[in-house]
Amino acid sequence: MNIFRLSGDVCHLVAIIILFLKIWRSKSCAGISGKSQLLFALVFTTRYLDLFTAFISIYNTVMKVVFLVLAYATVSLIYFRFRKSYDSESDSFRVEFLLVPVAGLSFLENYSFTPLEILWTFSIYLESVAILPQLFMITKTGEAESITTHYLFFLGLYRTLYLANWVWRYHEEGFFDQIAVVSGVVQTIFYCDFFYLYFTRVLRGSGKMTLP
């Protein structure tokens, strides 16, 4: 464990909590892509199946459980409790265009052709594109509430810190997880455009992020 990975995991947890609390307190999921949250729940489900087969550490186990619980709780807020505020009209990204290539690639490019390993690989590839419905929804509506942008900022920060974590682990341990790194770089690139808008608009105190 290193400071980059630990702070990355903390940023990830903060992002998920920001989103959950925003929906819970505002009793609305307006502007939130339910599809992205479904994809994230699927990412955690397919990645954390080893909860029952491989014990890494207390931290690892606790964080996996917390991420799973919060992911499903957020999805249930969007699709059940506050479903009247769910804007399915704007959340129109065709997720099948993500799931099919990601599933195909996870069968082609993996470390070993076993069910657990293919599901892990699927979750890695899926995570890199899971935010796209949310980013698409923001471009469609042309705006995002500032709390939603803070959620995206912390998600992007978690991914950026993971890149630093991999540099550190390669330098310190000779650790290099090619599938995770390539997929992680692609995922972080998707946030670059958002980061630009975030730093030039939201942090200028304009409150809401409106796209040009």
């Binding site: 990975r5 550490s57 993971y162 650790f175 997880d177």
Partner: peptide
């Protein structure tokens, strides 16, 4: 190289 079975990252 990585031990593929040991995915110790979240």
């Amino acid at each position: 190289s990585i031990d593929p079975a040991r995915h110790d990252e979240l």
